[in-house]
């Protein structure tokens, strides 16, 4: 599902560089990624998602070498095949719950907002317990509810790979397990791979495989990465 080999990434200002010897995830695998702050976990997720492009090396997702794709193609690949969840939810505050969930369909020509997509959005919103808030603005929701909306947005396109960057960082204990379980259940049901960055050791027990980023570095990182 994910294959990284001999990847070198440097931010433009040269303050930070990340070298990954190799990383492999198979379809349906659920992995927790840990590491100290500034070790490049988020950067690694961005590389896998094609948000950043490595200077050197090969990154393939589900057979597509995204590290070699131009920006437009990486975006198209991302929106079609990947679901991303961020620590800060990254919702559009002027949109309702439903509109936030359907956002991927409205910002790309590669997906079609049809009845099926709307049905999936409705089912996901219901599944995470927000049916009554479907048409409410996300600013009216609690932190836990917002993250559930963000999870729905990541799942609505039925991605083969889920990338979650500290998805429970801003949540209380009840909500953090709820969110992680939603992601894990989806991955299991759809045979999707799940790579979750987390600092929370309580959650690590839920992942069959945990990778410490230090173990896949070819050498220590320098500086502090931008988030």
């Amino acid at each position: 599902m994910i294959e990284l080999s001999d990847v070198l990434f440097r931010y433009r200002d040269g303050e930070f560089e990340l070298r990954i010897l190799g990383l492999e995830l198979v379809r349906g695998e659920q992995v927790g990624l840990i590491g100290p702050s500034g070790s490049g976990k988020t950067t690694l997720l961005h590389l896998v998602a094609g948000i950043e492009r490595p200077e050197r090396g090969r990154i393939a997702v589900d057979g597509t070498v995204i590290s070699e794709l131009p920006d437009a193609n990486r975006r198209a690949f991302r929106v079609r095949n990947l679901g991303l969840v961020f620590q800060e939810f990254a919702l559009l505050e002027h949109l309702s719950v439903l509109d936030n969930v359907l956002l991927p369909y409205r910002i790309t020509p590669v997906l079609r907002l049809d009845r099926a997509a709307r049905g999936r959005a409705g089912s996901l919103i219901e599944r995470v317990g927000l049916a009554e808030a479907t048409n409410r603005l996300v600013t009216h929701l609690s932190q836990g509810e917002r993250q559930r909306v963000a999870v729905c947005r990541a799942l609505v396109t039925e991605p083969a790979l889920l990338l979650a960057d500290e998805p429970t960082g801003n949540l209380d204990p009840v909500n953090k397990f709820r969110v992680i379980d939603i992601l894990r259940d989806y991955a299991r049901e759809h045979d999707a791979a799940l790579l979750t960055v987390t600092h929370d050791h309580d959650l690590l027990g839920r992942f069959p495989r945990v990778i410490d980023i230090k173990s896949i570095h070819s050498e220590p990182t320098r500086g502090v990465p931008s988030s």
């Binding site: 998602a49 437009a72 910002i107």
Partner: peptide
């Protein structure tokens, strides 16, 4: 800016974001 970054991160097409 964060809104547009979010759209970029989830794979929004440049043309769509500019159009919005």
């Amino acid at each position: 800016k964060r809104e547009t970054e979010t759209m970029v991160k989830i794979g929004g097409a440049r043309a769509s974001i500019v159009a919005i």
